[in-house]
Write a protein that binds this DNA or RNA. Sequence first.
DNA 1: GCCGAAATGTTGACACTGACAACCTGACAG
DNA 2: CTGTCAGGTTGTCAGTGTCAACATTTCGGC
Lengths: 219, 219
Amino acid sequence: MRQKAPRIGGPSASERANVKKKNRDLKEECIREGLKIIAKDGIGKLSLREVARRLGVSHQAPYKHFASRDHILAVIVARSFDAFARHLDRHPKTDDPDADMGKMGQAYLEYARRHALEYGLMFNTPLPDGRKHPEMMANAKHAFALLCDALRRKALQRGGALDDEAVMLDALFIWSGLHGLASIAASSTVDTLGIAPPILARSPMHLLRRFSQAMDTPE
Amino acid sequence: MRQKAPRIGGPSASERANVKKKNRDLKEECIREGLKIIAKDGIGKLSLREVARRLGVSHQAPYKHFASRDHILAVIVARSFDAFARHLDRHPKTDDPDADMGKMGQAYLEYARRHALEYGLMFNTPLPDGRKHPEMMANAKHAFALLCDALRRKALQRGGALDDEAVMLDALFIWSGLHGLASIAASSTVDTLGIAPPILARSPMHLLRRFSQAMDTPE
DNA sequence: GCCGAAATGTTGACACTGACAACCTGACAG
DNA sequence: CTGTCAGGTTGTCAGTGTCAACATTTCGGC
């Protein structure tokens, strides 16, 4: 076909042809580039055409790996939930459910602080429909499930009947606090609320201490 | 100019001309219609062209009232923050800071439950740049400020020095829990976590009780 | 009452997007 | 060697946001 002159913007067709099919994983490159776009300009700027341009392929090439824009977004979010779940699972269960929850709480807030973008994507973003993308939500419940498990183990250690409703209510209480503080750390809410960095730095330990105080009060 | 035949879709130019300029507030109509679109199809589907079609005006008419799509979104979010602030201000301050915080907590969670869409817009949505739209964030801090105020009054009643850092840390603790639970109520997270409606219904009182327990433990 | 300015509509145009269709090329299995 | 498949390509269409220029209505000053 006619050799096109290189255009302003992305590489020309001839330049793209020089990128070998072999030795490349375009699907993974699209995911990485997509996350870069989101990180820099926000989710609204995620565009498969822009991803294609940056990777030196045609505008349709990403659509051979992702059915739609929502599909690549679902993969990015699923990867975030998976990484989050693995991060929380680093601490093995011990015989001390309180210590387990303390460690899990720290891990939760640490993940949100270190991976603010991914945390924001999981929880503070309108996501593609979970029913159309069930794999995206496969690990979404993991943190909450770990909390429920630890609270059950704690209740059983205390003896008495296992009150599942009480477990759920306390899991909600703890998860809400963790999620609320994590959301602050993962977004510009910290600036909105005018919280000084030393305060934010101390808030995880303060939150966990208040959790202990609340949970140690008999009902 | 030539009379156009009515087109499939929105009203034709001739039909639109029949809508008098008098007796209409197109700006407010755009805001209401925009919120309807967001409520039904999500923020990604907010489109000024669609707003214009539904209101029977040309695609450019909304742009005479809003500089851009982000500007109408900023107004919608600002209105939500304002309404939220007014809702929280309904309860007057008393001599009992604990009771004040309890009432405010209930009002907070009630707003999120009754106005899930607006709550989600304020906190779980990528917003236009707050620096470009400072009026959007004018009331964003109100809830947190009320908490700080009540905690200061409580500390002063107890006597002793006013530790502003302790006040901020506890305000963060309480706000995080309120925001976390409100976010659950205002989004599909409740389905994600698999929380039964009776549990969710009881969770506000449970959260507030746990707050009291945590706060009544001397440090 | 007239006139100019402002407000707020209109039509038209452009660059960009998402996604569909059809075609092309290289790899691979039989 | 041939057919199929994977994964590229070019082209197209419908829609969007936003800019420009023009038109109409309203309003204030004289």
